[in-house]
Design a protein around this nucleic acid. Structure first.
Lengths: 214, 214, 214, 214
DNA sequence: GATGAATGAGATTTCATTCAT
DNA sequence: TATGAATGAAATCTCATTCAT
């Protein structure tokens, strides 16, 4: 029986190898500019083999995103372990996302592209549904923190948890996207230190929602 | 006399027609998916004609962005006419951008794409330089409002005008980008009214920077 | 009536201007790489105007060749004026062609290309016939020199004037063509002085046909 | 074992098939007029396949020339086997080139075009260097025959081996080029038999360089 | 299962030529 | 007559995908 298992394991390893290669290529060149050939070369596999793992370029891209997404959510989970305080939780959540962008810019880039472009996928696919569900779960966790904060008197009463949660999430994503593109220009043209800006970002967010000044 | 002028006018009109067509196509399909054929068909001109107005697909795309940019900045100028109050100015600035995205989603999309992707352009081109300069001017105007607000005691003293100005600008762009993609889902999945969200957005921003609660 | 004459003169001047421009462009880029636009720009005329003087790119090319050909034949005529001696005549003939290639490399290049490629021309055209006739005349003059030389005992009796005339004419053209391409390499790679080579060329030719050593 | 070899062999055969097709197309239409589509059709392959064998039209053209060149040089080698006599060697050399032009007019045409036009190739390419080296070797062989002939008293002492070698080589190429174009006209217009002309050509060359009349 | 090879369909760009003014 | 503008037709090259081995 060991044979079947080994085969299974090998297949899984190949899949990972492909996704890793794809992640780099897609991030470097963007979805459209990247070619399946590029990915196959990077993965040191033939194009045809690649197609035996993924039905299409789109599906491969989606797999990369799924992988990144799992990484992001595991980082969030990890950061929120053992934190009870709502303020700390909100901060940890935000910081996880920022850290994710910094640690895995390729994944971040892939996910952002995926969210802002219509990539054709089979909507009946189990994977696509699973992905969607996971997103919902973490968005809910995020919004519930706003609810809790409000009940605890941490967050202003006029704050609508859903709206604000979504707004901040949307802003953050956009900010990080532009930030990743402008990072270099910010330092040279505006003489702005990255960490300062990130800190000011947290401040701005919290000043916007908290009842009392920090 | 009149003849030369008329010719000039006609050429300008054709150019506009092409840009309008391009604006729609690019916005619908994205820069890469859009083909020059698509644009030519939409503009009811031959591909070759189109190439006599624009040297390359890139240049055409850039022209669309320039056009959108001019529109945006003229909307900002218009909105800020006759406003002295700094708070009102900041609000008018933000509202102009939001309104721009709503009124000209194609332009917004084009500009966002342009800013977040590296489209190859001749950096020595006068047009490219002009474009860059215009961006700088309006970014400066925006940041100076923060300075003024701070001097007037409107904005908190711990706010760094440059950082905050940039942050809010980056956030807004990202927010609008994601918002434009999610608009439909927000109403159906989350039951969120667009105008409410936008209002909450303004609140969040101003709560983040103003000295006194609104 | 002066008006009609002036018009005629002006038209002729324009035609010359176009041919001059075309000569340079065609020589620089070759017939295929050169564009009608290139020629029009060089001639400071619109493409459409150019087409009112020449029916097609081919015809324009042919006009350039005609012009070059007239130049060549006038140089030959000039060189052979007042020469009676057959040996001197043969030498003058050869030298004229060599000089022509050196003085008007563009024309030479055009004519060579024209002779070795099939450029589509209306064979019923008067111009084409005239051109053909002129070629025949000068080829005949050339061959007759061989005849005369033979009768005079200058040239060996076993020489067939037609064959040798044609051979030397073909060789010379080919030699000059390759020479014009290799000129630079000859000096640098082989350390050969242009004039030495040309002299050796004359020697070789005459050693080949003359009865007595020079 | 056998599989890899067979694949290799098949690929080589396809490559040959393409080169053969290209040879004909290029020779018929010339480099510029010929299209990659033409070649692909002739080779009964898709354009894309063709591009998987040759990176560009230029590279394909170059491959055709390389192939022709190898053919030419092998003909020369073959002709000079078992010949010691210098006069016979010179004659064999010349005859090989003439025979090459007659047997493989397409190759001859391709090589001539290649030598007289600047086709853009990667100068660092191994193939390009190899080609250049081969040319050098055979040119050297040719010129050394002149040297040897001079030492043996076969060739006149006033002959410069390098100059004469180059001159005759240049002349021959040019002559064959024009000859290939005019072959038909020579027979009809001038009533000249091909073989007679070729013989006269050999005579002319040798009368030009040899010490004693043949 | 892995792969080298093949390809259809299409992308961008060019250019000789015509036409309305 | 001179020209700016328009265009059909084609050229080179690319790439996601399939298939025979």
């Amino acid at each position: 029986m060991g044979i079947a298992e080994r085969k299974e394991r090998e297949r899984e390893q190949r899949r990972s190898k492909i996704i890793n290669a794809a992640e780099k290529i897609f991030s470097n060149k963007g979805f459209e500019q990247a070619t399946v050939d590029n990915v196959a070369n990077k993965a040191e596999l033939s194009k045809a083999t690649l197609y035996s793992y993924f039905k299409s370029k789109e599906e491969l891209y989606f797999a990369v995103c799924m992988c990144g997404q799992r990484q992001l959510y595991s980082m969030i989970d990890h950061a929120m372990e053992n934190i009870d305080d709502t303020y700390q939780s909100l901060l940890a959540f935000l910081k996880s996302i920022v850290k994710f962008q910094k640690s895995y810019p390729d994944y971040f880039q892939a996910i952002f592209y995926f969210q802002t472009h219509r990539i054709k996928l089979d909507p009946k696919s189990e994977e696509v549904k699973k992905n969607h569900k996971l997103d919902q779960i973490y968005l809910k966790k995020w919004i519930e923190l706003f609810d809790k904060g409000k009940r605890e008197g941490l967050i202003r009463q006029d704050i609508n948890p859903i709206n604000s949660g979504l707004l901040i999430w949307m802003q953050l994503n956009g900010f990080l996207k532009i930030f990743s593109v402008m990072r270099y220009a910010l330092e040279t043209d505006f003489n702005i230190a990255e960490d300062d800006l990130i800190n000011d970002y947290y401040n701005l967010v919290f000043k916007g929602i908290l009842k009392n000044k920090l």
